[in-house]
Simulated assay, not measured.
Amino acid sequence: MRFPRPAAGPLRQVARRLLLALLVLAVTVVIVYADRGGYHDNANGTVSFVDALYYSTVTLSTTGYGDIVPYSTGARLMNIFLITPLRVIFLIILVGTTLEVLTERTREQFRLNRWRSALYEHVVVVGFGTKGRAAAKTLMGRGVPQDRIVVVDPDPKVVQGAADAGFVGVVGDGTRNEVLLRAEVGRARQVVIAAQRDDTAVLVTLTARQLNKGAHIVASVREEENAPLLRQSGADAVITSSSAAGRLLGLSMLSPSAGRVMDDLITYGSGLDLIERPITKAEAGRAPRDLADLVVSVKRGHRLLDHDDPEAAPLQPTDRVIAIHRTGPQDTPAAQ
């Protein structure tokens, strides 16, 4: 698992600890040298700056040869109330790596348990390449919180990049049950499958559908001939990336303006958005053409009716409409 967190480089952490250790040593040297009259050196009876440095080093490291000792009351009190706490701080800094690893593991385990207990009705994105990133960006634009999107990818670098961007990431092969279980796919509301290979997409779809019978699964394939296989595997919607891109290219060649409009419609927040939303109480009983948004289709139960279909009017309270909506600063994400 990879959770979003600010990253600090290892060299920076080592340098910070080294500076703290040197600071503690410097403070100890100053204290000892300032009170050098209260110390006795068995070699010559006096304590020089080098002797103070030597005494501070062996004392903080708990070596303690005993050749330099505090004999005055003030020096001994200074050792009790200042040198000893500094020794403890110095030792904590030295073993800080071990302590940090243990603390980090405990913290990560706590975050994992809390995350799992609170995670439900989320979105799992399998494959965080170009398609997966674009899907996650669109979901966020439509109001899905970033912490409700879980990324699954076999590449640790990709997952770490997703975590650095603020997503929760799971490293592993999405075709394996244990990997999708770590992403809590059993409690997910939607699953987006953006694998690089069509055969991988089929296996991920089969695995996800086995673990979650009610999730809405949207999958992407490169070849049109593989789309029926994905639908049979349990995908609710299949997007053929190569055909979709080809159609948009052809449309842009024949009509550049129409191509720009289509790109605008499928790019959320760029002016015109193609949205699906429930109708409001005020819109119930009206005809699709009477709505403020330009209605393209009406979804009634499992049927999709054209805007000019006689059965589409009047609109029923349980209907949903697919409409072209102009975005603005006052707009909020449409209900899904």
Rank of each mutant, 00 (worst) to 15 (best):
H307G: 00
P228K: 14
Y54K: 13
L119P: 00
D309Q: 06
M78V: 03
E223K: 15
V261H: 07
D264S: 13
A215N: 06
Q330D: 10
F110S: 13
V144G: 02
I92R: 13
T332P: 00
R16K: 13
P333A: 11
E276M: 10
S270T: 14
G246M: 13
P145M: 12
V170P: 01
L139F: 14
R133Y: 05
G143E: 07
T59M: 09
A215Q: 05
A8R: 14
Y39F: 15
T327S: 14
G269V: 06
R114C: 02
A201D: 02
L181K: 15
L294I: 03
V50L: 14
A8L: 15
S270E: 10
E224D: 05
D290E: 15
L53Q: 04
V152W: 11
R326Y: 09
A323D: 01
L91E: 02
Q336V: 02
G246A: 15
D263Y: 12
L22W: 07
Y39W: 15
Y54V: 08
R277A: 12
L249P: 00
G259W: 12
A165N: 05
T103P: 00
Q336D: 08
F49H: 05
A284M: 06
A245K: 11
L230A: 05
G66A: 04
R182M: 11
S233M: 13
L91S: 06
I149S: 06
G285P: 05
A334M: 09
A52E: 00
R197K: 14
H122E: 04
R107N: 03
I266W: 04
L249R: 14
D236W: 04
R76A: 04
R5F: 07
V32F: 01
A118P: 00
I93W: 01
H307F: 13
A244Q: 09
S72Q: 08
R286M: 14
R320G: 01
L99W: 10
T332Y: 11
Y71L: 08
Q336W: 11
Y71A: 01
A195D: 01
N44Q: 09
V185F: 10
P278M: 08
R231E: 10
L19G: 12
I217W: 10
V88G: 08
A235E: 02
L180A: 06
R187T: 03
M253A: 13
A201Y: 04
L60G: 03
L119Q: 11
R12G: 09
Y120W: 12
A287D: 09
V150G: 05
S241P: 00
P317T: 06
P154T: 03
G271N: 09
I83H: 03
V69N: 04
G96A: 13
G328S: 12
A183I: 04
V30M: 07
V95A: 10
N226R: 15
L230T: 01
I149H: 07
L265K: 10
P333T: 01
W115H: 15
Y65S: 07
Q109H: 11
S117V: 05
P70A: 07
A258M: 13
L181W: 00
L229E: 07
P256N: 08
R17Y: 06
T138L: 15
D67W: 09
V191G: 05
L86K: 07
M140G: 05
G38S: 07
R148A: 05
D319I: 10
V144F: 11
S233A: 15
A135H: 12
A287R: 15
T63L: 15
L19W: 05
